[in-house]
């Protein structure tokens, strides 16, 4: 059987160790809003190991979005430490953080955030433009990533010619193209209907099975159930941290859902 190089890569990194990909120690984050200080994170301690699939839940204002931004190196802690693959990134400057985002982190957003009038392939290629990768290798990686989400036949399509589910799959391919250590998904199913949501979760479960570490923010309980572990945030702290028991397979759930007729 032909295996895709990117998948091989994921499997091999998964095999290296079960050490913590993410370790957060006594994380605090506060914003100064005029006179008042808003506490978004009030002492978070947690670890995520390689190959985990974690769902983060919580009401708005619970600090889960802030936490995701910290994990994604888009924001920095006010105090505490964040270690990504045993490297303390709390003290990294902007340029170093950009490099980490490029090499180690894949983002999937609620609103897909694809570039309009740019093909699926070119959208997938975007992160490679900021890495030192030559043109043929870029094309190859982008095509591989699209294959992984089952959209290689749509490579030349523009976002406006694709459904929401397809656009989100292109976004996932974009997140995978630089072979990241973790995939961060912020409400990836928020703009999708329930069947398409499950399809996206199926892709996540398959990637996770191949060894990819995934952190997912959602406020839908049934979506969170597809993960292996659920963290619940409230008032800037982790209130619950439970493994998912009786985790459903998205592929099985899909069979029970009626197919959309078009």
């Amino acid at each position: 059987m032909e295996t895709i190089p990117a998948v091989n890569q994921l499997e091999s990194t998964a095999a290296v160790s079960a050490s913590a990909v993410i370790r957060v120690e006594d994380a605090h984050k506060y914003y100064e809003l005029g006179e008042t200080r808003v506490h978004a994170l009030r002492g978070v301690n947690m670890e995520i190991h390689r190959g985990e699939f974690v769902a983060i839940m919580g009401a708005s204002g619970s600090g889960k979005s802030t936490f995701m931004n910290i994990l994604g190196c888009l924001d920095r802690l006010s105090s505490g430490r964040y270690l990504l693959e045993e490297i303390d990134v709390s003290e990294h400057n902007k340029k170093a953080l950009a490099l980490i985002r490029n090499e180690k982190i894949g983002f999937v957003f609620q609103g897909f955030n694809l570039l309009a009038r740019t093909t699926a392939l070119e959208n997938t290629e975007l992160p490679t433009l900021y890495a030192k990768i030559d043109k043929t290798e870029r094309r190859k990686r982008a095509a591989d990533a699209l294959t992984m989400v089952g959209l290689v036949d749509r490579a030349r399509h523009f976002p406006s010619q694709m459904s929401g589910g397809q656009q989100q799959r292109v976004a996932i391919a974009r997140a995978l193209v630089n072979r990241p250590s973790i995939l961060l998904a912020d409400e990836p199913t928020g703009n999708l209907d329930s069947r398409t949501s499950v399809e996206i979760m199926d892709i996540f479960q398959n990637l996770n099975d191949k060894g990819l570490t995934i952190v997912l923010v959602t406020h839908e309980h049934d979506i969170a159930q597809f993960a292996r572990r659920v963290l619940v945030f409230r008032d800037g702290k982790i209130r619950k941290d439970d493994p998912v028991l009786g985790r459903p397979r998205a592929s099985e759930v899909l069979k029970t859902l009626p197919t959309l007729e078009d």
Binding site: G72, L74, L99, F107, N113, L115, Y130, R174
Partner: peptide, 10 residues
Amino acid sequence: GVRVAVGATE
């Protein structure tokens, strides 16, 4: 925002 998120430097 997307470009910065996927690793574009300033």
